[in-house]
């Protein structure tokens, strides 16, 4: 809320400055995002792996995707933010740029990312967000009913890939988005 007061005069890291600059230009690019975490408590839990894939002109670009797996043991042991985590967050922010983020219950992801970012002396994420669960809620005209990712996938007839990785999950979220997009007239 009063973030901006805290941030006055603060010297952001390079990647964050670049992020803020990019945000000033609106974009049609979208990024489907999936984080694997140890839990949903942003203060305590950690990110284990990151999967993201870009959608441009309503096409999923496999070429433009990001997939990072972190060393779980190392993260859980260390009290501080490890170097590999810093790198992962930096490359994710760089990858996102000014794109709209799409995810399943994306506010959890954003919370946990914000937590990381504050440890890296950066501000909070300001990207536009889309949540496939909320989108489905709109389509079905149900009042904030809960839909798990699996339910959504089976509802839209999307086959689970054989290997469950964050990358594949991000891809499936992207496919979900494409299928929902026209129904909502986005």
């Amino acid at each position: 809320m009063l973030d901006w007061i805290k941030n006055i005069g603060k010297d952001y890291p390079e990647f964050w400055k670049y992020y803020l600059v990019q945000l000033e230009v609106p974009s049609t690019r979208k990024v489907a995002l999936h984080l694997e975490t140890t839990g949903i408590n942003p203060t305590k839990d950690k990110i284990i792996s990151i999967g993201a894939v870009a959608i441009e002109n309503n096409q999923i670009l496999v070429e433009s995707s990001l997939e990072i797996e972190l060393n779980k043991d190392e993260i859980l042991e260390s009290k501080e933010v490890t170097y590999q985590e810093v790198q992962a967050i930096e490359s994710l922010i760089n990858f996102m740029g000014n794109a709209t983020l799409i995810g399943h219950r994306i506010h959890y992801d954003i919370e946990i990312l914000n937590e990381y970012l504050s440890k890296l002396q950066s501000g909070r994420l300001k990207s536009n967000l889309l949540d496939v669960e909320v989108m489905h809620d709109r389509i079905m005209d149900t009042a904030s009913k809960k839909y798990s990712l699996e339910e959504l996938l089976s509802f839209y007839n999307i086959k689970n890939p054989e290997v469950a990785t964050s990358g594949n999950s991000a891809y499936m979220i992207a496919v979900l988005f494409l299928k929902m997009r026209n129904k909502l007239g986005l």
């Binding site: 995707s65 997939e67 890939p161 054989e162 290997v163 964050s166 990358g167 991000a170 891809y171």
Partner: peptide, 12 residues
């Protein structure tokens, strides 16, 4: 870098 999406596509 690992790319499991590409792998899934290739698998198909």
């Amino acid at each position: 870098m690992k790319n499991s999406i590409a792998e899934s596509v290739a698998n198909f």
